[in-house]
């Protein structure tokens, strides 16, 4: 479906975007948050240590494990620790959509062809993204604010592109064994 803006949310000040990526690495799930301005220029980058649930944790969290890991343990921690608070969070992790229940920031996910869409998400298209966008049905009321924010993003920005940068940066970080270098 295509979401139509019903009202125009007037926001001022420089736009800040957060790109939240959660990836499975050898040491467990790791999160990375790139904060950019509306032109896609980096303002802040933060990443987490990997977290690996054990078998008991996996059994006891059951189907809620990924959501808890991506949204609460990784997503919320990154947002809390980041100095530049984003106006909109874009994630490549579907389970991280529920980060919206933990922060007062609209969250959308990049649709992946590999994912089967759960029933509680709304899919929509936008010129700022070469892939479909997903919004939690529980927060459908965010849609006008999200559309308004998307309109403020520079037309040259593709919301899927910064995740490639994040991958490069994570590879570099891993290569240099980066730690204790944070500013």
């Amino acid at each position: 479906m295509t979401i139509q803006a019903t009202t125009s949310t007037r926001t001022t000040g420089p736009l800040t975007l957060g790109f939240l990526s959660v990836t499975q690495e050898p040491g467990g799930w790791a999160g990375h948050l790139l904060v950019t301005n509306g032109w896609g220029r980096p303002i802040e980058f933060r990443l987490t240590s990997p977290v690996q649930p054990n078998r008991v944790q996996s059994a006891l969290y059951g189907p809620t494990l990924l959501e808890y890991l991506h949204a609460e343990v990784i997503g919320k921690t990154l947002v809390d620790k980041t100095g530049a608070k984003p106006d909109l969070i874009v994630t490549d992790s579907l389970p991280a959509l529920t980060l919206r229940t933990r922060v007062e920031i609209p969250v959308i996910a990049i649709a992946s062809s590999a994912n089967t869409l759960p029933a509680d998400v709304i899919s929509f298209a936008h010129p700022r993204s070469s892939a479909g966008l997903l919004l939690s049905n529980r927060f459908a009321s965010d849609r006008n604010a999200i559309l308004s924010l998307l309109e403020r993003i520079d037309p040259a920005v593709d919301l899927t592109e910064p995740f490639a940068r994040i991958r490069d940066a994570v590879t570099e970080h891993r290569k240099l064994g980066g730690s204790n270098r944070a500013a």
Binding site: A30, G31, L33, P42, I43, E44, F45, R46, L47, T48, S49, P50, V51, P53, N54, V56, Q57, L60, Y61, Y68, L69, V73, I74, T77, L78, K81, T82, G83, A84, G178, S179, N180, R181, A182, A183
Partner: peptide, 15 residues
């Protein structure tokens, strides 16, 4: 059998 609590540490850079 183990901790149920999961946590991560972070590091970051401001540009």
């Amino acid at each position: 059998l183990g901790r149920l609590e999961l946590y991560v540490t972070t590091e970051g850079w401001k540009f």
